[in-house]
Amino acid sequence: MDLIWEGLRKALELLLTLDPEVLRITMLSLEVSGLATLISLVIGLGIAIPVALTEFPGKRLVIALLNTGMGLPPVVVGLFVTVLLWRNGPLGFLEILYTPAAMILAQAVIASPIIAGISLSALQHLPPGLRLQILALGASRPQMVWLLLKEARLPLLAAVMAGFGGVISEVGASIMVGGNIKGQTRVLTTATVMETSKGNFEVAFALSILLLVLAFTVNAVLTHLQQRNRPR
């Protein structure tokens, strides 16, 4: 218990003193996971919309693959992205391994299937006739898609939250493709792992508490957006 209280005290101290290193780590965590979630939203919806709205052979297989992708182990993603970005790898010419860009790429790979899978399910759960009703009201195809997304906004924001939650908390991929380089690719999760391995439990607790606060703040904002325009 003492360790936890000490962690809380340390976290408060780090926050109140605006420790520059902790601030940098926190901001980088937010930046990397936030951007990765945004990219995943675009990719996820880009997959979910056509899969939900069209019929094609092998659709069930695609859905099964997406659902499997929702549980992609971060270390496996980390391994594949590392190999892709390795100097001699297919994307080696980008020279982004051990940079935040590589971490964003890896996290986007993790979050995209999560957002795609939940969005697909959300769109498929809309009333079956709604699409026809929207078209019968005179909507163009883009207008129809927009109205369907608006109608599914609650589960879609839940998809964003799940995607963000998945990447802000992962450590395997970030440490593999980012390298936990101080001042460059160190984020809250990788720093927590490092401090724990060094036996600095107070700092590790402090970083963990900051991670929780960050996750809560982002989700609180998203929840506010989710519930804001909902008729009661």
Partner: peptide
């Protein structure tokens, strides 16, 4: 043609919005 006709189904298929917003939807789309 779809912008000159419309259809009402067995299920009212209303949007998660107010009655006024629902009635205005088609007009807005057009």
């Amino acid at each position: 043609y779809r912008r000159r006709m419309t259809m009402v189904f067995q299920d009212p298929l209303l949007f998660d919005a107010t009655v006024a917003q629902n009635i205005a939807t088609g007009l807005k789309l057009r």
